[in-house]
Simulated scan of single mutants.
Amino acid sequence: MEKPASANASPAGIRPASGYAGDISAQLAYEWVLSGDAVLVDVRTDAEREWVGYVPGAVPLAWKQWPGMAMNEAFDQGLKTAVPAGMKAVLLCRSGVRSVAAAKRAAELGIEAYNILEGFEGDADAQGQRGNIGGWRRQGLPWKQG
């Protein structure tokens, strides 16, 4: 028996993903954090947050550490500590790539995890520069530098 088309539809604003709860916009992630439904976890390196900017109130928990981009051995425990049982985790990186890997790992740990599309800096433009197309900063959401 075939399911009606509506049975396959995902909740508004959530793109289905393989291995984690889904992909969402920065705006939706921000709304969830404001409403207390989710914890924002910034999985960029400490250097990226320091040099490029950070989101006030986000949990800083690198997926990989600079230099060398070695896996952060403390990631699993840090994530379990940061995200209370029953809450969603919304994961932010530079462009939305590392946060996919981190969301998959979070799902393996039993956490409802979402990747934030376009990340903090957005996609690269025709000149290969970030910050001009999409991303948390470009959308005017709260962030600080320095």
Score class of each variant (00 low, 15 high):
Asn8Tyr: 13
Asn72Phe: 14
Trp136Val: 09
Leu141Cys: 10
Thr81Ala: 05
Val97Lys: 09
Gly22Asp: 05
Lys3Leu: 14
Asp125Val: 02
Trp136Met: 06
Gly86Val: 07
Gln145Cys: 11
Glu50Phe: 02
Gly131Arg: 03
Ala124Cys: 02
Tyr30Gly: 02
Tyr30Ile: 04
Gln65Glu: 12
Asp46Val: 11
Leu91Tyr: 06
Leu141Glu: 09
Ala124Ser: 01
Pro67Ile: 13
Ala5Lys: 11
Arg49Lys: 08
Leu40Met: 15
Gly86Leu: 05
Arg105Pro: 09
Gly36Val: 10
Glu50His: 09
Arg98Gln: 11
Gln27Pro: 07
Ala89Trp: 13
Arg105Ser: 06
Gly78Pro: 12
Gly146Lys: 10
Trp51Leu: 15
Pro4Phe: 04
Tyr30His: 15
Asp42His: 08
Lys80Gly: 04
Arg138Ala: 08
Gly135Phe: 07
Arg49Phe: 01
Gly96His: 04
Val41His: 09
Ala9Pro: 03
Leu79Met: 06
Pro11Asp: 08
Thr81Ile: 02
Gly122Asp: 07
Trp63Pro: 13
Leu61Arg: 05
Leu28Tyr: 12
Gly140Ser: 03
Leu141Phe: 10
Cys93Pro: 00
Ala47Glu: 13
Gly119Ser: 04
Gly36Lys: 15
Leu61Glu: 03
Ala70Cys: 00
Leu34His: 10
Val52Trp: 07
Leu92Val: 08
Asn72Trp: 15
Ser99Asp: 08
Ala17Asn: 00
Glu48Arg: 05
Trp63Asn: 12
Asn72Tyr: 13
Arg98Lys: 12
Ala58Gly: 12
Pro4Gly: 07
Val55Pro: 04
Leu61Tyr: 03
Gln65Leu: 14
Ser95Asn: 12
Ala102Glu: 05
Arg94Glu: 13
Cys93Arg: 02
